[in-house]
Write a protein that binds this DNA or RNA. Structure first.
Lengths: 112, 112
DNA sequence: CTCGCTGTATTATGGCACTGATGCACTTAG
DNA sequence: CTAAGTGCATCAGTGCCATAATACAGCGAG
């Protein structure tokens, strides 16, 4: 019945967007796994798994017993990384798909 | 490490693309589950599962003991269906993402 | 009719991703 | 020191995916 994307991936994207948009400011602590889990109605471990990738990428810093902090420059770094991935991986695929469906990219730019 | 999409979904997309582009012409028989399974290195049942959805959507017709045939008008119907899904489900998300990343859609239309 | 091809149903099995509950190590406020 | 908060490791459960080995039913050529 879990037809949608995994919860931890949704959370990951959501957190990434929050960091990029400054909702989780650099240098500040982001919600604890338990807090975010309660807020999102998820399991703390699932939240932890979502946070994990940001640790591996060095975008957040862990202080055991204290919390996790957003590294300085994480926002722009994250934005650049996602931009790169979007342009190199996703956009070509999207273009090919639109072409196959007979859609003109120029037309879609206008629709809000 | 979210492994790649399930095999039967990949096959489904691949077959859909083939029908849209006329590689599997309307009225003609498409590869048997065993043949496509051998060609793709997959299990016949996995191929059957990929074919299943096209049957449910009435895009292919089964003649027991003979094979499965592409229904007349399946290509355009499939293209319209995917176009609808793309415009209503995927494109808004893509637009929001590009906006969040600071990418201008107009710029991307030109690249290639 | 016989043989070979079609799709389909059945059952079983292994693997893996996702989620969850519990407990531990650590830091800080009091 | 105590208590409450942090992240994290371990183990278990669940469900989907893919595979396999058969067996069956329908059609067509020889």
């Amino acid at each position: 019945m879990t037809q949608s994307r995994p919860v931890y991936l949704k959370l990951r994207d959501q957190i990434a967007a929050a960091i990029i948009q400054g909702e989780y400011p650099e240098g500040k602590m982001l919600p604890s796994v338990r807090a975010l889990a309660a807020e999102q109605g998820a399991n703390p471990l699932t939240v932890a798994k979502a946070y994990q990738q940001f640790q591996n990428d060095g975008l957040v810093e862990v202080q055991r017993g204290v919390g996790m902090y957003v590294v300085e420059g994480a926002a722009t770094q994250l934005r650049e990384r996602e931009k790169q991935h979007f342009l190199q991986e996703e956009w070509p695929e999207i273009r090919a798909r639109m072409n196959r469906l007979g859609l003109d990219p120029a037309d879609l730019v206008e629709c809000t």
